[in-house]
Design a protein around this nucleic acid. Structure first.
Length: 483
RNA sequence: GCGGGUGUAGUUUAGUGGUAAAACAAGAGCCUUCCAAGCUCUGGUCGUGGGUUCGAUUCCCAUCACCCGCUCCA
């Protein structure tokens, strides 16, 4: 619906020129189009004309995303000697957001120039136009009235057109509000969580005690978060409802730098181990002035999307900011007691979190390839790591007459993995269909199979075929798929 | 929210003041013994509502949605 202009090439070029980024081969509109056609990602609420920037994961998309989440959980929780899991509620006591700073810092003061209609952040405007010594305190701590006064007193001009004719400052709250209980009265106002991290922090003591964890240890959680972004966009890259792969790692103050390095490498290796192309990845350390208020070091892991470099993860060293704030607001003691050293301290936190939808999109984009086979033949193929592929295999009878036997094989494999079955069209066409959804193996049952008990296994990437006894299929696939 | 643009089949695109076309994709059938073969059949109240008109998908208005830019971010 109305997708005609979505990521057209001219717009991409415009975007690319601006960011000085070029990514040959894959364009976003092709990925979006394949995603919709093949059941990966559909526009949300489409029959009602859609709802801005909502996307629904289709049958293949949910497999892909679930596989991403599983692969993350496996490496960050299951196989980690340090970490345990959690699934906290989306709705939390509003005091949580007072402690986390979201109630104050998620309120962006926006101001519009009435003359040229440009929009600015009032705090940035003040920062860049008024000498620091004439500003009463840090800019992000000022209330709106003070900001308004400063802009008036210093006759700040619009950076675009030079006029001094601004609208009043308006507040953009990035948190989704809702109401607990059936009456919409003010006191029942609560928020959908803008990050999963706080669910972990408020459970720090519970988890530590219940699991008898010693520092250092981490708590991982996968879940949805909600932010009223002013400008979402770029397909599933920035949406108002999104899923996070969150890990909060608690360590002793003084050891945070080495753990920062540890998780920095760990996260990067995780992506590489799932076959993401290294040339499309980069780590970007934040400059001091770029750092968020809660962090003393931050490194973004970025992926080169067709629309430019985009942040997949923000590894951040959060000091004791979060637990300290929760101690202040809740009045509870969240200090860790080290019995051996007879010490008591607020742990420092390293947060190597990823955006689940972003990582999924990166894997999808990275896997996409239009391969030229010869002069007049080409194919579209998604080269997913087998652990991420929605279907691990597809069973194909060479002829419909062999359907019964092929279905038996399908049934056996389906008890282990997501497996597809297809008997329509020529064998070549069916291979191409599976290439396009990234199925790593196609298993063809032919006229000899009944006699020799063997089938052909065709590899997605090399298109090579081997012949294998039917009873060895499970072991063969199992070995290839393991992550 | 502001500014600009766009809405025709699953996708990409034609087209017209007299109720729409192509390619690819999809489904059914015939055929087909390992890499997109072929043949036959199947699809749309032209985003929604209103107006102008004998008549609108085409003109006008509104509305909704999407895309691009700005501010934001995992």
């Amino acid at each position: 619906m109305g997708g005609k202009d979505r990521f057209t090439r001219s717009q991409l070029h415009k975007n690319d020129d601006k960011k000085g980024v070029e990514r040959m081969g894959t364009t976003m509109d092709k990925v979006v189009s394949l995603a919709k056609n093949r059941g990966f990602i559909f526009p949300g609420s489409e029959i009602y004309g859609g709802l801005a920037n909502t996307w629904d994961y289709g049958p293949l998309g949910v497999e892909l995303k679930n596989n991403v989440k599983k692969a993350w959980w496996k490496k960050f929780v299951q196989e980690s000697p340090y970490n345990v899991g959690l699934d906290a509620a989306i709705l939390m006591n509003p005091k949580t957001w007072e402690a986390s700073g979201h109630l104050t810092n998620f309120n962006d003061p926006m101001i519009d120039c009435k003359k040229c209609k440009s929009r600015f952040r009032a705090d940035k405007l003040i920062e860049s136009n008024i000498p620091a010594d004439q500003i009463p305190g840090p800019v992000d701590g000022l209330d709106f009235q003070t900001m308004q006064q400063l802009i008036e007193e210093h006759k700040i001009k619009c950076p675009e057109c030079g006029a001094h004719d601004f609208t009043p400052i308006r507040q953009f709250n990035l948190m989704f509000k809702t109401y607990q209980g059936v009456t919409e009265s003010k006191k029942d106002e609560i928020y959908l969580r803008p990050e999963t991290a706080q669910g972990i922090f408020v459970n720090f003591k519970n988890v530590q005690r219940a699991m008898r964890k010693k520092i250092p240890f981490g708590i991982g959680q996968v879940g949805k978060s909600f932010r009223n972004e002013i400008t979402p966009g770029n397909f599933t890259f920035r949406t108002r409802e999104f899923e996070q792969l969150e890990l909060e790692f608690f360590c002793k103050p003084g050891t945070e730098k080495e753990w920062f390095q540890y998780w920095r490498t760990f996260g990067f290796d995780w992506l590489k181990s799932l076959n993401i192309k290294e040339e499309n990845l980069r780590l970007r350390d934040h400059e001091q002035e770029e750092l968020p208020h809660y962090s003393d070091a931050t490194t973004d892991m970025e992926y080169l999307f067709p629309f430019g470099w985009g942040e997949l993860s923000s590894l951040s060293s959060r000091t004791d900011y979060d637990l300290r704030r929760h101690m202040e607001i809740s009045g509870q003691d969240l200090q860790y007691i080290d019995q051996n050293a007879n010490e008591r301290f607020i742990p420092y936190v390293i947060e190597p979190s990823l955006g689940a939808d972003r990582v999924t999109l990166a894997f999808l984009t990275d896997a996409y390839e239009e391969e030229k086979i010869d002069e007049k033949d080409s194919r579209t193929v998604l080269r997913f790591h087998p652990a991420l592929a929605p279907y691990k295999a597809c069973v194909l009878p060479l002829s419909k007459k062999l359907g019964k036997e092929a279905r038996d094989i399908y049934g056996k494999l389906a008890s282990h993995w997501m497996v597809d079955y297809d008997e329509t069209g020529s064998i070549g066409k069916r291979y191409r269909r599976q290439d396009e959804i990234g199925t790593p193996f196609c298993i063809t049952y032919d006229f000899d199979s009944k006699d020799d008990g063997k089938v052909t296994v065709r590899d997605r990437d090399t298109m090579d075929q081997i012949r294998l006894p039917i009873e060895e299929l499970s072991d063969y696939l199992s070995e290839k798929i393991t992550f």
